[in-house]
Amino acid sequence: MLRIFKEHQFLFEELVKRDFKKKYKRTILGMAWSILSPLLMLLVMRLVFTQFFGSNTPHYTTYLFCGNLVFSFFSDSTSQGMSSLLDNAGIFTKVNVPKYLFLFSKNVQCLINFGLTLCVFFVFCILDGITFTWRFIFLFYPICCLTVINIGVGLILSALFVFFRDMQYLWRVCIQILMYVSAIFYTVDKYDATIQRLFLVNPVYVIIKYFRVIVIDGSMLSPAFHLLMAAEAFIAFGIGAWMYKKYNHQFLYYV
């Protein structure tokens, strides 16, 4: 594994560079968009939903931002990852390279984007009067889990997308649904315990919840909760890796 990585490190770096340059080609604001677009989204949500949920949720802006931050990372990373394999068909049908490199490079790009938004998030936290504690260090854990989930889901989607082009429309619908069941702008307290537990099946919600508990409540989650996150990440990545292993040699018949 390490040997393969070393062998393709140069290619990987060049792919990341390429994806980065292409993303903001011919835009006036360039990189600023990765900060602007979540901010605009936040602004609209803040204006629309404060009426309904804002009054009884402490630090509602931060609450919203947590949801948006995590959700847009997931949605960007998986949606862009989906087409990464097919977009590079011209390369892997002519050169013998590991096919997952294309997805990884897209994910690196999304991770950097997420990092930028995270900085803005912390600025907003200060403005919202959040106290920073040493527990913020634990935010690394959900970020790692989410990155692994993103890669796993990306692997699954990009493999399926080669075979079924319907995936792009299907996934758009899924993302839409996922947004509503991730408790981004509402709280789950009103639901009864069984349904609240059902929310935990959704990995995006789990990560969002982790963020909120650390940042807003300033407390910690149980070890079982940590295990749940790791398990969800492991399952997503496992399925994705298995699909790539199985269909690795069949992709090029369908591009």
Binding site: E14, K22, T93
Partner: peptide
């Protein structure tokens, strides 16, 4: 010609 990207410069393409 495979693997070249029209939007990148000649130098970037050469490295890629």
């Amino acid at each position: 010609g495979s693997g070249f990207d029209g939007d990148l410069t000649v130098k970037e393409n050469a490295f890629l």
